[in-house]
Design a protein around this nucleic acid. Structure first.
Lengths: 138, 138
DNA sequence: GAATTATATACCTTGACAAGCATATTCCAA
DNA sequence: TTGGAATATGCTTGTCAAGGTATATAATTC
């Protein structure tokens, strides 16, 4: 009775820190709920709930052993994440090379630079070169 | 003035579908807010807000060009995700091999595989061997 | 069968966050 | 300087998910 919505994407699943912890724990070997509970020091209902989410999303599967449930990883959802990452990998290998090329289109003092003699007159498209960096607003 | 909390992990950032869309869009090349807005068909404030989150998390950086902001990817946070995934990759390469070994510890009627002469004899604390699979409750 | 262990689930409360809408800000052009 | 384009931000609201606590279910042992 937990239909109507579940969770759309694998990304929402691994957004939760406790769930990531559980997954990491299961990499080495399968574990019972109690074992997870003890190693991660989290309340049993919390563990069970997260396991349920992980199970319904296909990240883990369980085996019944008496009163125990042995949970283990399933590869597919994680592979899905890996696949999403693929295009970006291409990007960041190219990025090191591209960096120098960017640098001379951008003010080299970057990161914090005092605006360089504020000139105006360019427009985007065509000759533009007046591109300043925006700092993190953190 | 948007400190005190930001977001802890890169995973929470990419949990949001629109943000993933923006990132994917930026893989090919940098884009202005308006371009993103049009291509993804989302309201401008929505785009700006997501860009802000992405920027503060280091996923993107921006360059000012007149009234435009040109956003482009930064590799680090995505690499962080990639790094988290690493241990699991090892797991799923091993998984294909391990599969057959698992199959005879588990009830063979499940899923569909041709069970290889179901043998038993493993345990887990005392005599029990009754390990059943748990179905998705979806 | 009673007590105990292991796990799941129900209910409730609270906090986070995304969207919508309006508005502020900045830069440009005429 | 007025208007318009591009982008950012403030405020409000609804939704959803996570945690806490209690309890249900199931298997085990005595």
């Amino acid at each position: 009775m937990a239909y109507i919505k579940s969770v759309d994407s694998v990304f929402e699943i691994i957004a939760e820190p406790n769930r990531r912890a559980i997954l990491s724990l299961l990499v080495s070997s399968q574990q019972s709920v109690g074992e997870i509970e003890r190693q991660l020091r989290m309340p049993q209902p919390t563990v069970s709930k997260h396991l349920r989410v992980l199970r319904e999303a296909g990240f883990v599967e369980a085996t019944v052993d008496a009163q125990r449930r042995l949970y283990r990883l399933r590869p597919e959802p994680l592979q899905e994440i890996d696949a999403w990452l693929a295009p970006f990998r291409q990007f960041w290998s190219a990025h090191v090379d591209a960096l120098e090329h960017y640098l001379d289109r951008i003010d080299p003092t970057k990161e914090d630079q005092s605006k360089p003699t504020k000139k105006k007159t360019r427009r985007r498209r065509r000759g533009s070169n007046r591109e300043r960096d925006i700092g993190e607003t953190k």
